[in-house]
Amino acid sequence: MSVRATAARRNLHRIIVSHGGVIALLFAAQFVIGAYYHLSLTRVMVLATFAVGYNILFGYTGLLSLGHALFFGAGLYGAGIAATQFGVGASGAFVVGIAAGLLLAFALGLIILRTAGVAFMIVTMMFAQAGYLLVLYFGTYTRGDEGFVLKGALREAHLFGFSLNLADPVTRYNLALFLLAACVVGCIALVRSPVGRVLVAIRENEERSRMLGYNTFRYKLFALTLSGTICATAGAAYALLFAYVGATFASIEYSILPLLWVLLGGIGTVLGPVVGTLLMFYLVDVASSYTSAYMLVVGIVLLILIVWAPGGLLGTLRERKIGWLP
């Protein structure tokens, strides 16, 4: 076996051990922590899935979107409205939410990927803002800012003959963990695949990738669609697990937050978004117990990161110590 193949094998082992370790740690955590952290960690894991999805586009493809609340919102409202208005049941609603995000991301990608850089940022922001306003405009169905809750039979998911009680904290925790783990594993597989290699190439130098024979538009569309779909999956899961659908989750704040989580944890790393979401969630949690101006923390951390530490935590670590981190 060649030197390169040996090294690749060793790296794969390290990746499996480290990432599997984090997932195992999250699994073990549920037996140790109290009820409050049990619930909030469930929330963090769903939001971290959102961040992992965002990172595929931002971290690996180099497209900075300021409108991913649109996809999270599509999943959230897709699932929420399907469940309450069309009576498709929890599992059906989950699928509808994912499909909504997938279709939206694909269709929108055809339009917005004509732009790049600053224009891309503004265009995504504008579309997300339009989406948020649409939620408010159709207040009859969405109940606007106030939002709506999922009740009764919708707290029960039926899958392959099994029945899951979504109101049960333990079920909820492990479903969220399963979702996050699946996305992390999928993300590792993507990054190590030929597609992942091209996405990184586009991030590093799109013109060169084009001249190496890649249809960069198609790759970017794939990245955006996948990213949007994962974010919508997180949104749908959020709606079904926490039984609440509200316009806040489609607002600009939820476009900025995944950016912040990814920047904090480490742009272009698989676990970075998870670490970033975890830290930021509890930072905001602590801040909001002191002041109603807790978004100040968001602003300050964002500023520090963009000016002084654009690599984030794991990004800096990879630069200095562990080069094999995907």
């Binding site: 900075l64 300021l66 950016l259 100040l296 602003g299 300050i300 964002l302 500023l303 963009i306 000016v307």
Partner: peptide
């Protein structure tokens, strides 16, 4: 852009 978003919140 990201920095001015941060500034906005601050």
């Amino acid at each position: 852009i990201v920095a001015t978003i941060a500034l906005l919140y601050i």
